[in-house]
Write a protein that binds this DNA or RNA. Structure first.
Length: 765
DNA sequence: GAGCACTGC
């Protein structure tokens, strides 16, 4: 038997169902607990104990206080039902609406059943976002009366707040668990894995669901809980269903859906209103509705959902102007209004303003003030604002769309799903009964909106994901058991890219280079150029470029100071490439670190630059692990050329050739007509450019662009630039000329005809 | 001569 002290006792006594002596329980609250066979009565007794069963320290007064609050959570009342289901099944789907306490309580329930601390195992609970993983872990550590980072911890990128050997309950981002799976495909450290917020369908959660479904068959000791919102539960139940007679010849197993554990939420009712007719201009209608609420509805704050920064800032200005007018015209019935914008690129300090209280009445006894938060989707999932009573939902959000044919992800304002509309409405009922005004007709809601928002896996470029899956040992990507399978063309595009980058061989097997690439938290193109950069004596520089490309835009351009911002940018610009400018910006930032105001004075985001520093350090550690040298060229004549050459090794598939005159480029092979983005710092329009991204806004643009030489492309990516694979056109002819010229040059050396001399002469002019 | 919905490694 194991060295489990509780079990050891049990074996001596033969049978542990009789109630143990109180003195024993006082010292060993977990006495008599059988792993995975505990009852809610046992657990409740342990919870009431004066001794912490995990630390053996006496419980604090705070513990008792929190416990009293926990007992009021809906999920607490269903503890017995939970243990019964958990004991009997390997996989459970759980539905718990907001306020049910599922995220904090269920993992603790599992701890008492798994007793992971006696077996050196852990329980993992994944979250789609870092802040959630951190804050929930803190809360649960308090509830369990332990230090955060000891028995209960969290693990997110850049921060591992766990103690190996001590931590047995770990909250983590879904991406982190996926990373761990790449090095331990059986996830042997875990006794139970809980995927929380599965309905959000992040890429990582979707891949994890596929892995866990397979893993459940290989590891009978592993338990899995999928926690989600109501609408998705049936889909997950079916996906994780089992055929009882699977494998038995001649038997047609009947699919048994995974059991559902359902816990009610604790929210207030929200009354939903629709418009009679469709609204032609949703922004105008939204502003009108907010003002109507302000004039006619009882006290309570308003949350308005719009799609982006510009729209939000614009709406805030208009609402403020009109609300001030209303108040001045009718001070006895209309109170003051504060309008607060909210979107992710807003500095944290300004984001905090959403938590400010509503303005007070202008005079004692006057009409109350009201706060209006105008937000992107960030307020739908990531941030909750208490005190919201009214929600205005125009029914749109910006959504990512991926077009595998031209390999471009773009953002498109699109109608939201029913699930999303429901989530938005719910934001009105967190503190008291509320109202939701939908700026579309009920008929449109019923018949036009999709049930669910498309999962990320259907909207993304999967190059990264495919590399991860191959690293995970998934052989047949097309037949992998996805919850929702991506378009075959998306997978083909990803495989093609990875093959050109030599991460996969022609049979789709991972190459040693690909295995290394998969270890970097980067897109494959970036990982590739980082790994090859020592060959060009510029790994220090490429590491910086890669870090800068991994963080949000560092340039700040306030609408009122565009000229100044552009001038500041011009001073830092390196004329033959935006990538080189990024390198320069980072180096200048590091040189001026003693000056706290440097970033601000140069219209740069200090936050983004600090992030780049952080990413750079993390990538540097991974490079050390693989003994990839950090080197720089001392020769200033070749310094930037080396960087440009290394860029070609990763991004040779993202090259465009100038055709015709003003700002007209054609992407190589895909033949998309694009223009240099206005933010581009190139001083002329070079014939060949390499770009980091292709964006589709008012017209197709390429952004973050560097001037490259066609000779480099032919030399470092001969397979991709094999001319027999090109369609006829100016690009092919231009490349052919380069090849002819090179051949000609070598012929000149052996003494050649006048044609080549003629060509050389032309080139000089 | 334009923009950055939101996450994550």
């Amino acid at each position: 038997m194991s060295d489990n002290p509780y079990l050891a006792h049990l074996n001596k006594k033969k049978g542990g169902s009789s109630t143990p002596a109180p003195e024993l329980l006082a010292k060993e609250p977990l006495f008599g607990f059988l792993p995975r066979r505990v009852t809610s009565a046992q657990v409740q007794r342990a919870l009431e104990s004066d001794v912490n069963p995990f630390t053996k320290a006496p419980h604090t007064a705070q513990y008792k206080k929190i416990l009293a609050a926990r007992k009021k959570l809906p999920v607490y009342a269903q503890m017995e039902e939970f243990y019964k289901m958990f004991t009997e099944h390997q996989i459970i789907v759980m539905v718990g609406e907001t306020g049910s306490g599922k995220t904090t309580q269920i993992p603790q329930f599992v701890c008492y059943s798994d007793l992971p601390h006696t077996k050196g195992k852990l329980i993992a609970c994944t979250q789609p976002r870092r802040v959630a993983a951190m804050s929930v872990a803190k809360r649960v550590a308090d509830e369990m009366d332990v230090q955060l980072g000891e028995h209960v911890g969290y693990s997110i990128r850049f921060e591992d707040m766990t103690t190996p050997g001590t931590t047995f309950l770990k909250y983590m981002t879904d991406g982190m668990l996926l990373r761990e799976a790449m090095n331990d495909p059986l996830l042997t450290r875990y006794s139970t894995i809980i995927l929380d917020e599965a309905h959000e369908r992040t890429l990582a959660t979707d891949i994890l669901m596929g892995l866990l479904k397979t893993l459940a068959k290989q590891r009978s000791d592993l338990k899995i809980i999928i926690m989600s919102a109501t609408l998705d539960a049936v889909k997950f139940q079916k996906y994780f269903g089992i055929k009882p007679k699977e494998g038995v010849e001649g038997e047609q197993g009947i699919m048994q859906p995974a059991p559902l554990f359902k816990v009610p939420g604790r929210t207030h009712p929200v009354e939903v209103f629709y418009t009679q007719e469709p609204e032609p201009d949703y922004v105008e209608a939204a502003i009108r509705t907010v003002l109507m609420i302000h004039r006619a509805e009882d006290e309570g704050d308003v949350l308005l959902f719009l799609t982006g920064e510009e729209e939000i800032e614009d709406a805030c200005r208009k609402i403020k102007l009109e609300a001030d007018d209303l108040m001045n015209n009718d001070p006895d019935s209309v109170g003051p209004l504060a309008c607060v914008p909210l979107y992710s690129s807003l500095p944290p300090q300004q984001q905090q303003r959403i938590f400010d209280p509503a303005p007070s009445p202008r005079s004692g006894g006057g009409p109350p003030g009201r706060k209006v938060v105008v937000s992107t989707n960030i307020a739908e999932t990531s941030l909750t604002i208490d005190g919201i009573v009214y929600v205005v939902d125009p029914g749109f959000s910006k959504q990512k769309v991926y077009n595998p044919r031209i390999r471009v992800e773009s953002l498109l304002v699109s109608p939201i799903s029913k699930a999303s509309a429901q989530q938005r409405a719910g934001r009105a009922g967190r503190t008291r009964p509320g109202k939701c005004f939908r700026l579309y007709t009920e008929k449109d809601f019923m018949s036009e909106l999709e049930e669910q928002t498309h999962p990320e896996i259907l909207k993304s470029n999967l190059a990264n994901t495919v590399l991860e899956l191959v690293k995970l040992g998934i052989k047949d990507l097309v037949r992998f058991d996805y919850v929702d399978a991506p378009a075959p063309e998306t997978l083909m595009r990803a495989l093609e890219l990875l093959n050109y980058l030599a991460a996969l061989d022609d049979d789709g097997n991972l190459t040693p280079l690909g295995a290394m690439m998969a270890e970097f938290p980067l897109d494959p193109q970036l990982a590739k150029m980082l790994i090859v950069s020592p060959e060009f004596k510029c790994s220090n520089e490429i590491l910086t470029v890669v870090a800068m490309l991994s963080v949000p835009n560092v340039w700040v351009r306030p609408p009122s100071m565009r000229k100044e911002a552009d001038a500041a940018k011009a001073e830092l610009t390196i004329p033959n490439g935006d990538h080189l400018t990024m390198l320069n910006v980072y180096n200048m930032y590091m040189q001026n670190k003693y000056d706290k105001n440097w970033a601000w004075q140069h219209y740069l985001s200090a936050r983004a630059l600090a992030q780049a520093e952080n990413v750079r350090a993390q990538l540097e550690r991974t490079m050390e692990r693989f003994e990839i040298e950090l080197v720089s060229s001392q020769d200033m004549r070749t310094f930037y050329d080396n960087v440009r050459k290394a860029l070609c090794c990763g991004f040779f598939m993202q090259v465009a050739h100038r055709e015709g005159e003003k700002n007209n480029y054609l992407t190589v092979k895909d033949n998309q007509v694009v223009g240099l983005h206005p933010s581009c710092g190139l001083d002329n329009q070079p014939e060949w450019v390499l770009f980091n991204e292709f964006v589709l806004t008012t017209r197709p643009y390429i952004r973050t662009v560097t001037d490259v030489r066609p000779e480099w492309l032919l030399e470092y990516a001969p397979t991709y630039f094999d001319l027999s694979t090109f369609t006829d056109g100016e690009t092919k002819r231009a490349l052919q000329r380069v090849i002819n010229k090179r051949a000609g040059k070598s012929e000149v050396r052996v003494g050649s005809n006048g044609d080549n001399r003629e060509k050389k002469k032309r080139k000089k002019n």
